[in-house]
């Protein structure tokens, strides 16, 4: 995932096209049919593979690929899930927990340090501010994956390979998180409030913790989400720095199963793939508002 950035400073005014005055009446039936047809086709393209995965996961073991790909044929989802968790001495459960641990820990610490850094850049005038922010923007532009091989070489030298730290330490750093925090802090935290805190004699860090961070809370959820997903989805880094299967996150484990050429039955891999997207899809559906906040802040001039 490479989120976007521009020098956004204020949120765009949202305009709901449908609610524009005089909106609905003046469209012809033909144009409506045309628009809806194209949308239906593209939606089929986006949804059909996932739908296939769901349907195949419910078919009895060994029958994942038989019958119509798009419709149910027998229901054995729970037996299939049990098979996934039994394969290789239950390593799949371990992988899922590893992913939750890596993504959760890295996103938690990452959100805190990004919030502090973004807040400092947004709310303090100091020498070197432009240089720091410029460096962070440049780091957003060069994708993380480019740093992965060098990280491997460095960790190899200092003996961090095959430890959770090799996965966690790089994942905590999120230049995009700092960028978002800066945008949100300059939008949401009024200078007057910080001044008022100072007049009351509160220390700078105290002001940040009990005033500014609270106001930024919804934005912090967005930063946490983006980082969580980024770490969860990261494949190259763990694939390179974690050799020990019991330390690997689910995407690496799943890719390994998929490449195992039948050692793990293809049907089991299908169900495992389904299980591994479940947490993110649920989070995505429940927390839509926060996704949108991050994408809009990142994307709009």
């Amino acid at each position: 995932m490479t989120p976007t950035l521009v020098s956004a400073t204020r949120p765009p005014k949202q305009r709901d096209s449908g609610a524009r005055p005089g909106g609905q009446r003046d469209t012809s039936l033909a144009s409506r049919i045309g628009v809806m047809t194209v949308l239906a086709i593209t939606t089929f393209y986006f949804l059909a593979p996932v739908w296939w995965l769901v349907v195949a996961s419910t078919k009895p073991a060994g029958h994942q690929f038989s019958g119509s790909g798009l419709w149910f044929d027998g229901f054995a989802l729970f037996e299939n899930i049990a098979l996934v968790f039994e394969a290789h001495d239950g390593i799949f459960g371990r992988w899922m927990l590893n992913s939750v641990f890596y993504a959760g820990t890295a996103a938690l610490f990452g959100t805190v340090i990004s919030a502090m850094a973004g807040y400092a850049i947004a709310k303090y005038e100091f020498r070197g501010r432009g240089v720091v922010f410029g460096a962070i923007l440049a780091a957003v532009l060069i994708p993380k994956i480019m740093f992965t091989l060098p990280l491997f070489l460095m960790f190899n030298q200092v003996g961090l390979l095959n430890t959770p730290f090799a996965m966690l330490l790089p994942s905590v750093v999120s230049p995009f998180g700092v960028y978002l925090a800066r945008v949100f802090a300059s939008q949401a935290v009024p200078d007057e409030l910080i001044e008022a805190g100072r007049l009351d004699g509160a220390g700078e860090f105290r002001i940040f913790r009990s005033v500014s961070a609270r106001i930024m809370a919804p934005a912090l959820v967005t930063i946490f989400l983006f980082q969580f997903v980024e770490v969860w989805n990261n494949y190259l880094l763990p694939a390179m720095v974690l050799n020990d299967t019991s330390l690997q996150p689910v995407v690496v484990g799943l890719a390994g199963w998929s490449a195992s050429q039948g050692q793990i039955p293809a049907g089991t891999v299908v169900v495992a793939a389904f299980l591994s997207i479940l947490p993110l899809v649920v989070a995505f559906l429940c927390l839509q508002r926060f996704w949108r906040a991050g994408l809009t802040a990142g994307a709009i001039k």
Partner: peptide
């Protein structure tokens, strides 16, 4: 466009693949 209906659904549907890790999408 003004001719679109069910925007929320279509927007969500096209954005759903973003929630699928690329590795898992490739396996699928």
């Amino acid at each position: 466009s003004k001719s679109a209906r069910g925007r929320g659904f279509f927007r969500l549907a096209s954005f759903l693949p973003f929630a699928v890790p690329t590795v898992v999408a490739a396996v699928m």
